[in-house]
Design a protein around this nucleic acid. Sequence first.
DNA 1: GTGAAAGCGCTAACAC
DNA 2: GTGTTAGCGCTTTCAC
Lengths: 329, 329
Amino acid sequence: MAVTIRDVAREAQVSVATVSRALSSPDLVRPTTRDRVLSAAAQLGYQPNRAARGLITGRTGNLGIVVPDLNNPFFTGVLKGVQARARQADYSVFVADSDEDRATEEQLLRAMAKQVDGVIVCSPGIDDTQLYEAAGITSLVMLNRRLRGVPAALMNSASGMRQIVEHLVALGHRKLVYLNGPRTSWSNKERRRGLRLATQQHGVELIELGPFPPRYEGGLQASDLAVATEPTAIIAYNDIMALGVLARLRDRGIDVPKDVSVTGFDDLMFAALCSPPLTTVAMPLAAAGTLAVDLLLDGLNTGASDARQVDLDTQLIVRGTTSPPPRTA
Amino acid sequence: MAVTIRDVAREAQVSVATVSRALSSPDLVRPTTRDRVLSAAAQLGYQPNRAARGLITGRTGNLGIVVPDLNNPFFTGVLKGVQARARQADYSVFVADSDEDRATEEQLLRAMAKQVDGVIVCSPGIDDTQLYEAAGITSLVMLNRRLRGVPAALMNSASGMRQIVEHLVALGHRKLVYLNGPRTSWSNKERRRGLRLATQQHGVELIELGPFPPRYEGGLQASDLAVATEPTAIIAYNDIMALGVLARLRDRGIDVPKDVSVTGFDDLMFAALCSPPLTTVAMPLAAAGTLAVDLLLDGLNTGASDARQVDLDTQLIVRGTTSPPPRTA
DNA sequence: GTGAAAGCGCTAACAC
DNA sequence: GTGTTAGCGCTTTCAC
C-alpha cells in the first residue's frame, strides 16, 4: 500500500493530527514543526488519499461534466476549458458521454452526482425536472442553457444570429431559410429567438425547416428541402450541418456563395478549412468551460449560490460562403 | 447528508453487514431478506458511497485517461470508446488533458494514479522511465504505443502506411515525401517504419521532412518544403497536417491530385468533407478505446497482467486526393 | 501548539 | 444466514 499519514507522522516524530494540520492549515502549527513534517512528507513522497479526506470533509475534489457527444468538437472545446481550469484549482474531472440519449444522460448525471462536488451539464436534451432533482444531490452549473436558480455559463447565441442577419441583410438578402437543430435544445431556441427578432426588425422573410439532427447527415437532408423554398441564404443551426449543406449543394451543382449563401454556427476548426471557408459565428468554448468551473467553485465556497448566469459574447466570422444574392432572385 | 447504509439497514430491519452483502454478494443472503433490503434501498434511493467502499476494498471504480489534446479528434475518438466501455462496466472515467506538455503530462499521470484503478495513457511524449514509475503506483494500459511489460491497445499504423505506399506505387508514383510528426511519438515511429519498409520493398524514393507540429499550421509550413523537393506524392503524418498541406497547395495554385497526390492518416470526420476529399487511413479509434478498457479490467481481475499487446487493423480509404502522377514528373 | 480519540460510510473477518 | 466489530486514511473536536 501507499504511504499514509501515519508514516509521515512517525518519520517526523509528531502525531497524525499535526501532520494533517501542517498540510491543510499550516498556520495552526509552529514553523519548525511544520518544516519537519513537510520535509518528511516530501521525502516519503506522501500524497493524501483524497477518498479518505472526502469521506470526512464531504468534499471530493472532483467535478464532473456531462456531454451528449464527445465526437462533437463543440463539447470537447468546452471540456478542454473545463479541464484546464479544474487542474489549476487542483480538481479532477469526470467526463460522461450520453451518446445523445436522454435516459443515459439522466442516469449518468445521477451516478456522477454522488462522487463529485459539482457537475457541469452540457445536455440540451435532459429535462428540467430531472435537473432540479440532480441539483438537490450536488451543485450544478448549466452550460448554454438557462435554468431558474441554477448558475449558468451562456454563450450569447441570439446575438450571434442577429449578427448573421445583419450581415446578410446588408448584402441584400431578403429571403432566409433557417435549418432548425433539435427543437428541445436551449441553443436552438436561443438561436431561433435571435433570428426571429432580427428578421422581424429588418423586415425580411424567414422560412423555418426541420428540426434536423445536428450533424452532417442532417445538413445533407435539410439542404434539398431548403433549396426547394428558393431562399437566397441558408442559415444552418451549426457548422456541422452547414458542412453537410455545402457538400450537398456542391453535388447538385449549386454554387456557394454565388447562387446561395450559407452560414454555420460554432466556428469549429474545420469551418475555416472547407472550401469555400464557412461564414459562421465563433463561440467562446474554452472560455465557457473555464467560466463554468469558476461558477461551480464560487458556489461551493460561498456556500449558498447566487445562481449567476453569465453571458459570453459570440462573434460573426465572415468568410467565403456569404455574398450578395444573385440578381434574378 | 445523503442516505447511508445505516438508513437502509434500519428500514429493512437488518444489520449494515447484511445490507452490504445483499448489494455486493447477493448469494450470501437469504432471498427474502435480500428482497427486503433491496426494496428498502430502492425506496430510500440509496446508492453506496464509492469513496468509502474504495477506502476499504482498495478499488475506486474509477479509471483515468491522459491525452495530449482534447481538441484533437483522434483522442476524443478514443475517449468516446473508453467512456462507453467504462460505463458498461460501471466505471467512471477521469480525463486529463496535458496540452501537449510533457511535464504536465507526467504530473497529471501521477495525480491521477492515486485515485483510479488504472489509467490509459495516450501520451506520445512522456518518457519510458516516468511510465514505469507510474506503472508502479497503478495499472497502466498504453494506447498506440508499445512499452515492455505493459498491456497496450495498438493500431497498426505500419500496415496503414504500407497500404498507402502500395496504392501510390500502383498509381505510378516513384518519388514520395513524408512529413514527419513529432519525432518521439510512437505513432510517428511506427508510421515511418511502415513507410520505409514499403518504399524499400517497392524500390521507390522516399524523402523525409520535419518533424513538424502535428497540426494544421504544421501542414502549411511543411507544404512549401515538400513542394521544393518535387515529389509526385506527399504523405502527411496525419489528417490535420494533410488539410494544412491541401490548403497551402490550393493557395499556391498547385492542383491536387493532378499535380501532386496527398494522403493523410486517421480518417477524421472532416477528411471526407474537404475538397477534394482526402485519401487517408482509417483508425479504429473507438475500438481501441474499448479494447484499452478491456485490457485494463482484465489485468485488474486476473491479478497479475499478461501484458497483452493487441493490434487493431487500419484501413486505407481511397478518396479524391490521390491519382496517377503528372506525365512530366 | 500538539496529541488522543471519535468518527466519515463502508466492507471483511469473526462470531453466533 | 446474519450480527458485531474492527478498521480503511483522513480531519476535527476536545483536552492538555
